[in-house]
């Protein structure tokens, strides 16, 4: 393979997939440098899983080319498979086997005999904190334990790229945090590339770069900070002694539209941190509190697709969604 391909863990050229008449993924051009975390953000049905399936050699692309760890996914699927780990959206564990057996068989399928994989299995079980449960059938595991076991399995073959399709869907906030701690640790210690899909905005914050996908196409790509800076407007919430007067002052002195609501006066401004002291100097009414909220990825998503990602979601909001929303 060429040197260009080798710099990147994942590289696609005009990659596309059509199901019958229905285009699921269109003209995907991606370059994910090695050792980074890349997130695919989008609502259900955006084409995220289709993309991952093509990159993991499970689905044959209709058009275009894709290279994973320097190998062509169509021409050299085995070379790709040897270099990737995969954690599916839905659980693909063998429920009848114990955790250790499942890992052992998985390693053997990848050509690693048990005497070689045994220490690695032990280390991975330790890493995901399942050593104490290694001899229990997976059927008895909780959702979080199963997910951790799947991540361990994804790492068993020492992948260069670990694909995670919705890695923390359906998990409680604590488990989600724990899994992300594991993932960060992995990346730092082993330098592997993480490629994940998510419709959780909080999860996208963990990524070095994200691509927002909608309707089979990438709308925008960049680091979370870049994307948010592009949207550009902070939200400022003020609690004052006289909200009506505050709204008037903001309109007259700053030329901005503010709305008075039950939680105070709310407005959007380019630089919230600079606006607050300026307003306090000019206000003429007592300012009780001021909150500046930087743009969220939800705002980014709204900006690029014209709707919020939450409106598209099928699942109910979790405590985490609400609690961590900024």
């Amino acid at each position: 393979m060429t040197a260009v391909a080798d710099e990147f863990a994942v590289r696609t050229e005009d990659l596309g997939k059509v199901y019958g008449e229905l285009p699921a993924v269109v003209g995907l051009d991606l370059s994910v440098p090695r050792g980074t975390t890349f997130g695919f953000l989008g609502p259900n049905g955006a084409g995220k899983t289709t993309t991952i399936s093509m990159l993991c050699t499970l689905l044959r692309p209709t058009v275009g080319r894709a290279f994973v760890a320097g190998h062509d996914v169509v021409a050299e699927p085995h070379s790709v498979r040897e270099r990737i780990g995969l954690v599916f959206q839905e659980t693909t564990l063998d429920l009848d086997l114990t955790a250790e057996e499942g890992l052992r068989f998985h390693a053997e399928l990848f050509g690693i005999p048990w005497r070689v994989s045994r220490p690695k299995v032990a280390a991975l079980l330790e890493l995901v904190d399942l050593t104490g449960s290694k001899d229990r059938p997976v059927r008895e595991f909780s959702g979080g334990m199963r997910r951790r076991l799947e991540i361990a399995r994804g790492l068993l073959t020492t992948p260069q790229v670990l694909f995670l399709d919705e890695p923390t869907t359906g998990l409680d906030p604590q488990t989600r945090t724990v899994i992300w701690e594991h993932l960060h640790e992995l990346r730092e210690q082993h330098g592997i590339t993480l490629f994940l899909t998510t419709h959780h905005l909080e999860e996208a914050e963990h990524c070095d770069r994200i691509a927002i996908m909608d309707g089979g196409q990438v709308e925008v790509e960049g680091s979370p900070a870049e994307l948010k800076a592009e949207v550009g407007h902070d939200t400022v919430v003020l609690r004052t002694g006289d909200d009506a007067a505050a709204v008037r002052v903001i309109a007259e002195r700053f030329g901005l539209d503010a709305v008075s609501g039950p939680d105070g006066v709310r407005l959007r401004v380019a630089d919230g941190a600079a606006f607050v002291p300026a307003f306090c100097a000019e206000a003429g009414v007592p300012v009780l509190s001021a909150t500046v909220v930087p743009p969220s990825l939800d705002d980014v998503f709204l900006h690029h697709t014209g709707r919020t990602i939450r409106a598209e979601r099928s699942g109910p909001l979790t405590v985490n969604d609400v609690g961590r929303r900024r």
């Binding site: 050229e13 005009d14 019958g20 370059s31 209709t62 058009v63 080319r65 990438v218 925008v220 790509e221």
Partner: peptide
């Protein structure tokens, strides 16, 4: 966006569906 130039048309294995 660090897009790579699209591949030559003959490399495309376009067979819809």
């Amino acid at each position: 966006m660090s897009a790579v130039e699209a591949t030559a048309p003959e490399a495309v294995t376009g067979r819809p569906g």
